[in-house]
Design a protein around this nucleic acid. Structure first.
Lengths: 225, 225
DNA sequence: TTGTCCTAGTTTGTATACAATAGATAATTG
DNA sequence: CAATTATCTATTGTATACAAACTAGGACAA
């Protein structure tokens, strides 16, 4: 696994929490490589907005409640548009892909509630795959790129608050509505359904942000040298 | 001037044209520094989408007609939304800033047509400043970031086709309509006017893309070692 | 002539060394 | 005791060296 993937994964999984300072030497030791490729990875993550630079070095970026609110506004705009375009341009292949992604998502959720197996991360990943399949159907590569860069950020927070059965049923219903609108090419309904779905997600995340921010308010040190 | 700013400027001014390969040693010699900071800059530009990576090294990214079309769709969506939010949230200070930016833009244009002085680049820059002042009034930092990353790309092409008096009058009128809608807080009108303005711009750029692409179809070599 | 293989030369990717300085700790003073 | 300043250590930023591998060019064969 290259340095970029490694660091990003650990950030999204919360092992490198917001505000934590990441030193190059520490990461280099972890990965058994020199500082040079580490710097490359950090620069990329910084450009993507996952790290923020200090006078010297970088820290994992943290987000205020207002940040999350703004990001969700952007995401709603982009994904809502993508859904409307998907309703316009979707092919039979797109529909099949969307349905398959959604099926796998629901299967895993059922499996989770029945047995308690499977990780939260894997469910979030499958949810993302479903959303991506819709964006893909919009036939706009540039909006795809933008969304996949914008969407990762709130992921940091999701794993903290998630998962009760009620929320699961909601998302089940919402996905179904969106899929149907895209299938029958109801452009405005596709956009509206996606809007509602994402804003609903936002309203579940937002109340928890303060708490999370508190947990990590003290700049973290490196785990055991 | 740091490496990032230097390279980016030369790309946007067309001195490093699309598809041109940039070698690290060449840039290092130009700037009289070592390859290390050059690599940083190239990595950042690659992440931002201005360069595309090969198996080894990078080239200046080129855009097809379809790319430009998609980018304009995204830009219209983002700036249209920003205009509508600006209509909602603009303060008196925002209005003043927007008007001043537009005044300076128009003054420079008049000066250009009367005397032929001032560069095309400076006019484009002032136009961008005007657009930025609107996005700023939307009070969404994340949409600002996204737009400033998305908008630069088509700039590469603008300087090629621009400038006759008719297009100038159009933009004069469009700016005025947008400003007015934001001032009287007509949200939908602000969005619609911005949409129209940007799509109009797109329709003037698009027909010229093929020609430009042709000019640079042959991978360029470095200017004199 | 066209296609393929091989070779030579560039250019990148990674490691490492060294100097500059930011940030932490201790000391000092109001 | 708090707050400011000074010192010192840790970490970064830059340069440089070396090995790996891609690109381009030419030779050779079909």
């Amino acid at each position: 696994m290259d340095a970029y993937t490694y660091i990003k994964k650990r950030i999204l999984h919360g092992e490198f929490p917001p505000k934590m300072r990441l030193t190059e030497e520490y990461l280099a030791k972890q990965l058994q490589i020199s500082r040079t490729p580490i710097r490359e990875a950090l620069k990329q993550l910084e450009t993507e907005g996952l790290m923020f630079p200090m006078k010297r070095g970088v820290r994992v970026r943290h987000y205020t409640k207002e940040d999350i609110r703004q990001i969700y506004d952007v995401r709603t705009l982009l994904e809502g548009y993508a859904a409307s375009q998907a309703a316009l341009y979707r092919t039979r292949e797109n529909l099949a892909e969307m349905k398959e992604a959604n099926d796998r998502y629901e299967q895993t959720i059922n499996h989770y509630f029945q047995t308690g197996e499977t990780t939260v991360e894997s469910i979030l990943e499958l949810n993302q795959t479903f959303h991506k399949s819709i964006v893909k159907a919009s036939k706009n590569q540039h909006i795809m790129d933008l969304i996949s860069k914008t969407v990762v950020l709130p992921l940091i927070f999701r794993s903290f608050y998630w998962f009760n059965e009620e929320q699961m049923r909601d998302s089940h219903e919402a996905h179904h509505t969106i899929l149907h609108a895209i299938e029958v090419q109801d452009i405005e309904r596709a956009r509206a359904a996606m809007h509602e779905h994402i804003y609903h997600g936002r309203d579940q995340v937002l109340p928890h942000i303060e708490t999370i921010a508190e947990d990590y308010s003290i700049p973290h040190q490196h785990p055991s040298k």
